[in-house]
Design a protein around this nucleic acid. Sequence first.
DNA 1: GTAATACCTAAACCTGACTTTAGGTCAAGG
DNA 2: CCTTGACCTAAAGTCAGGTTTAGGTATTAC
Lengths: 146, 146
Amino acid sequence: MYTIGQVADMFGLPVSTLRYYDKQGLFPELERTSGIRRFGDTELEALRVIECLKKAGMEIKDIRLFMEWCAEGPSTYPKRKAMFEERKAHMESEIANMNRALDMLKFKCWYYEQAIQDGNEDRVKALIPDNLPEEIKDTYDNAHTQ
Amino acid sequence: MYTIGQVADMFGLPVSTLRYYDKQGLFPELERTSGIRRFGDTELEALRVIECLKKAGMEIKDIRLFMEWCAEGPSTYPKRKAMFEERKAHMESEIANMNRALDMLKFKCWYYEQAIQDGNEDRVKALIPDNLPEEIKDTYDNAHTQ
DNA sequence: GTAATACCTAAACCTGACTTTAGGTCAAGG
DNA sequence: CCTTGACCTAAAGTCAGGTTTAGGTATTAC
């Protein structure tokens, strides 16, 4: 059993964050001894899960839901799986969007590289339609910009 | 020249957002006729750029900086390029992080798939160490979780 | 002539995930 | 005894990126 301060040190989190998580219902089984929180294995495990779920872009309220489902037992496996499937699909489309943005950024870097060499944008602007490197060509339509 | 309402329709943005962008200094050259905003080609171009830069995860204040640099002329090419290089690096590391999170999600989906089949987590918990599909094996250490 | 629109402003409000503040309890150390 | 440090609470503050509201002007439509 650990105090909030020990757990904060273990996870490199501010004490205030742990209190906040508790208030949000992320530790449904948390016990107290005369008002003081006592973190056990269940809570440490929960914290590890929370860190994972946050990385996956999940909101606190969804994480709470997940914790509640875990406490409810095997009957909630399908719900839990569905939540992760939905997250996975969301994440995949986010990554696809970010890759498009990344192509755009590559294009911008190339564009300004040329502009710096020339001292102006005239040549590079004229150059774009044919001479654009393959991988960023698709980006051009999105990036018809300075 | 267009009114704010026409531009809002053209870009599918609320009028309030355009006023907000203006207030944030994103249209340094915007003109007015007796108090009313007149959006010209410069502003439409700026809006296209803004949409790109937002996709690239840039904050409003950085976009304003970029707009100001554009207005300053060729001497700011290197600054503009540096801004995009920095963004590019940032984006690449974000994508890498997201891919790690995605692997974790794949692992979770697989895990619950097994748990649903078995009606409990006993077998899948025991199964993990050897039997984990290759691509998500690395993830396991991050996901030593329910 | 009045009602509906489209425009304007400043300022308050919203969301999420925390953080900070203000005020209080309790145990140990000098 | 009294200060320090770890814990507690509720409530307010923070940040970004808008959105909403309240109140005002100006043009067009019936």
